[in-house]
């Protein structure tokens, strides 16, 4: 009965191969477990209806990641939750120091990521996450390669600064901050 089944897209195998990575990506983008689950679910539902658009099997991962990102952006825009942080506020790349980054607290990291506008957050997550190259990130985001590189450098500098600052605060015995003065992401997560 092979031909009865042959028309069935292999959505199940895409789920098996990529659901965990997509969930992690969604979690880092949205910062909330329930929203990450919804986004992952939604991504596969959309993928199922658009599977005929996927021409090459080896593009499946990038394709699914970009569906998820679009779903996330759509949600953020319709609920007007997008951070209105100007790109300039991310600042220039400071001089590097060879300060070591000790253990990174998971909540601190997510707080720091949540402070980043999506245009900076996505490249940094894709960069660390799933071994996407600069070129692949540029394709996903539909921006020039140079833009990806400069955003990445600035986002990294920002995270380095945030995580090092906070590590120092914790070491000094200051209560662990729930949100930095500049972030305001407490409101954001409550609204999700």
């Amino acid at each position: 009965m092979l031909w009865f089944g042959s028309a069935r897209p292999a959505i199940e195998s895409l789920v098996e191969s990529h659901y965990a990575a997509l969930y992690r990506y969604a979690y880092r983008l949205s910062g909330a477990a329930q929203e990450a689950e919804d986004l992952t679910q939604e991504t596969f539902c959309l993928a199922q209806t658009k599977l005929f658009q996927l021409r090459e099997a080896n593009r499946a991962k990038a394709w699914l990641f970009s569906i998820l990102r679009n779903a996330y952006l759509h949600k953020v825009r319709t609920s007007k939750q997008e951070k209105q942080v100007s790109l300039d506020s991310i600042g220039e790349i400071p001089d590097r120091d060879s300060e070591r980054l000790s253990d990174i607290d998971a909540a601190q990291l997510q707080n720091a990521l949540d402070e980043l506008p999506e245009a900076f957050k996505t490249p940094i997550i894709l960069f660390y996450f799933e071994e996407f190259s600069y070129k692949e990130i540029a394709e996903q985001m539909d921006v020039p390669l140079g833009t990806v590189m400069s955003r990445l450098a600035r986002a990294k500098a920002f995270l380095r600064q945030r995580l090092t600052d906070r590590a120092e605060l914790v070491e000094m015995g200051t209560p662990k901050p729930q949100a930095s003065p500049a972030s305001g992401e407490g409101m954001r997560t409550e609204g999700l």
Binding site: Y19, R24, R28, I104, A106, L109, I124, F129, L159, L163
Partner: peptide
């Protein structure tokens, strides 16, 4: 940072 970013429990 890479290890921390990827450390999300599914």
């Amino acid at each position: 940072l890479g290890a921390a970013v990827r450390a999300v429990a599914v």
